[in-house]
Simulated assay, not measured.
Amino acid sequence: MQSREQFHSEMNELNQDIIQLANRANKALRQSMDALFNKDIELAKKVVEDDKLIDKEEAAINDKVILLIAKQQPVATDLRRLIIALRVVTDIERMGDNAKNIAKAATRLGDHYQTELPLELIAMRDSALIMLESAISAFQNEDISVAHKLAEMDDKVDKLYKQVVTDMLEKTAVNSAEVQYVMQIAFSARYIERFADHITNIGESILFLVKGEIVDLND
């Protein structure tokens, strides 16, 4: 069995890997939205390709967690911390998937559409990125006060999402290009909303880690 010092060293390394993965998801959302607003198809393709790195890193972190459990045979808080690590990286990987889907929406729209994109999408992105940065800080510091605040931040994203969908439903699409525009913008808003939901899941994981209580921040 490993020494406590070695276990804590490997836990710190694991946490740094998780933070790095979260930063990749942050970058993916930024770039996918840039691709959408700037009609940058090459950047969109890059986001899709880079998502493979997120998947690969998630798998590597999962392997580290399993190895740590096998070597250390942790109990109580130590075991809970490792289980939470698995939950958090799953949410981050899915955040990466949502960013990838926005990039795919950008490629489907192409660079020929003339309609202005709704600024609410930018507001949604900015709110989601602030949420992610807050979640990373809460994860590093096991700060339940910040974790609790993620629910309120997520409400803002939800309201913006509803506004985008309402606006899209009010549009009259008379040809296939306009139908495609309405669909892809509504989908993109949904992907950002889901991105934010996974951040609140991380908040829930932090609360469970620290307090041992199951809390639904998406309720």
Rank of each mutant, 00 (worst) to 15 (best):
L36A: 07
Q73G: 07
L79D: 06
Q73K: 13
E49A: 12
T77S: 14
E58P: 01
R87N: 13
K39S: 12
Q72D: 04
N98V: 01
K52A: 14
L79R: 05
N23R: 13
Q31Y: 11
L29I: 05
M95K: 00
L68A: 06
L67H: 08
N98H: 15
I92N: 00
R80H: 11
D50I: 02
K64R: 15
L79F: 09
A70K: 10
K46A: 12
A70E: 02
A85K: 03
D97C: 01
I66F: 14
Q31P: 00
K52W: 04
V75Q: 11
A99P: 05
V88F: 04
K45N: 12
E42V: 07
M95D: 03
D50W: 06
I54Q: 00
E49K: 14
N62M: 12
I66S: 13
K27S: 11
T90H: 05
K52F: 07
M95T: 00
Q72R: 15
K46I: 11
I61P: 02
R30A: 07
A35F: 04
R80I: 14
L29R: 02
K52Y: 05
L53C: 08
F37C: 07
Q31S: 10
T90R: 06
A35W: 00
K64T: 10
D34W: 08
N62W: 04
Q72N: 08
N23P: 01
K56T: 11
Q73E: 13
D51N: 15
I83W: 05
N62P: 02
R30Y: 13
Q73M: 12
I54R: 00
A85H: 02
F37N: 11
E58F: 09
L86K: 08
D40F: 09
K45V: 05
L68Y: 05
R30L: 12
N26Y: 14
A22T: 04
Q20G: 09
A44V: 04
I83T: 12
M33A: 06
I83P: 00
A76D: 08
E57N: 11
N26A: 03
P74S: 07
R24K: 14
I54P: 02
D50V: 03
L82F: 04
A25I: 01
R87K: 13
N98A: 08
V88P: 02
R24N: 09
A22I: 03
P74T: 03
N62D: 14
D91E: 15
L21E: 02
K71C: 11
M95I: 03
V75H: 02
